[in-house]
């Protein structure tokens, strides 16, 4: 957070990977008092122009990874993280921070975290709805979050919140400035709004 001291508004860029509607997320980030820009393609100037990069993802793992590559984000994201800058992945945008997914075994993820996504062990998939987070983080402890997913990261030493659906999976991960949320903060009511304010603000 030190880098942000002295600046009144955090500058947040939302990555548009052509994978779903961004309206709710954009509304939530603006409501958090951030300066918001939506970007389709990266530009090295972004390293100095923005403080936070938010990467939402919907659809299949391989599709989101292909968009990351086709739009030129792959190397940029690795560079962004190497510079210690904040990256927030949401839903499949969190999953692609890992090495791969059973959804599309041939697709390779960004590999910023070790581990893979596995199919949820529950007769009703996708998991759609609200679940209470098991978290030691004050920002998430006992809060209810909105999930829409069929796959999830089951094991990660950087897990910050867990949820059960058939078996336990990682609802959130964090290592330094690298954040991942399997649930949708932009659809998680007042709690979600405050969480977005916390990670973007």
């Amino acid at each position: 957070m030190n880098a942000l001291v002295g600046r009144s508004q955090t500058r947040v860029a939302v990555i548009d990977l052509n994978s779903g509607n961004l309206l709710s997320l954009q509304t939530a980030i603006e409501a958090a008092g951030c300066e918001l820009k939506t970007v389709q393609k990266p530009d090295l100037k972004m390293l100095s122009d923005f403080d936070v990069l938010v990467m939402p993802g919907q659809g299949r793992f391989a599709y989101v990874m292909q968009q990351i590559k086709d739009l030129g984000w792959y190397d940029f994201l690795l560079e962004w993280v190497r510079n210690g800058k904040r990256l927030v992945g949401i839903c499949v945008g969190m999953q692609v921070l890992f090495e791969g997914s059973d959804e599309d075994p041939e697709a390779t993820g960004l590999g910023l975290f070790n581990g893979r996504c596995h199919k949820l062990q529950h007769p009703k998939t996708p998991m759609v709805g609200w679940a209470q987070l098991n978290s030691y983080k004050l920002t998430m402890k006992d809060q209810f979050a909105y999930f829409v997913n069929s796959y999830a990261i089951t094991e990660c030493p950087f897990g910050t919140a867990k949820v059960n659906y058939g078996s336990s999976f990682c609802a959130a991960v964090q290592r330094g400035n690298l954040y991942g949320f399997q649930f949708h903060p932009e659809k998680s009511g007042q709690f979600g709004r405050e969480l977005i304010k916390h990670v973007c603000g």
Binding site: F144, N164, S167
Partner: peptide, 9 residues
């Protein structure tokens, strides 16, 4: 002992 944290909506 439930294996699901999903809530009824």
């Amino acid at each position: 002992n439930s294996n699901s944290d999903l809530t009824a909506r």
